[in-house]
Amino acid sequence: MFDSEYFNLGYLDTLSYRDTVIHRLDPRAKLIATVLFIVTVVSFPKYEIAGLLPFFLFPVLLFSLADVPVKFILKKVLLVSSFAVFIGIFNPVIDRRIVYSLLGVPVSGGWISFLSIMLKFFLTITSALLLIATTSFPGICHALQKLGMPEIFVSQLLFLYRYLFVLTEETMRIVRARDMRSFGNKGKGIKAFVHLAGTLFLRTVERAERIYQAMLSRGFAGRLHSVRSYRFSGADGVFVGATIAALYLFRAHDIVGAIGRFSMRVF
């Protein structure tokens, strides 16, 4: 459990350092596009299904252009212990009004709204995962700072990102040692956990002390400077512009209906 979570974390992080058209875009462009995408998707009302379908174009494009392994991300989406599924499943239970008959099979409003929640869930989670799979986390932090996040919060995120891997690895070693010596559930109780977390905490504070010394010895005086310069290029502008145009088109016009009617007329 712990190991696989850690592996996923590391793998996702490794993906973000690849080099593709999408990876090369400015982090700001990708962050803005992703946020707009999510807001547009959730802005659809409760019973919307067809209107959401064209939005699958975005993840599909990103998957293929950025060469992100589809199975890995889909697995991650499915495994997310989702509050959305847990709450959404009540809709069919509560809302049983039959609103539609699909080739003779009656469908209730609850099932339609549940399906709508599931589609939104899939689209929003996938787009967030695709963002991190195509953008290095330091890049995202840089984008956040450029977009006005306070410096201290951004440097906090960067530190956290840096030591996440160091500490999870350390924790993994301790957990393995615990699991090796605990048979059944013995040794996995709260008491053992508190001892483990306490030990880890002390080691962490000592580490912070050493890091602080390392920072001081290199002239640290309270601020983390940066000389990075990301450039918002023409390609980034085109990317954001195209995204906004497509989002508008998909949100404001009934694409599915139009295609459906057109094809009916043709056949």
């Binding site: 990102y161 840096r162 983390l224």
Partner: peptide
């Protein structure tokens, strides 16, 4: 790991 504290 204590010496390299920046993200890249």
């Amino acid at each position: 790991d204590d010496q390299l504290f920046m993200p890249t």
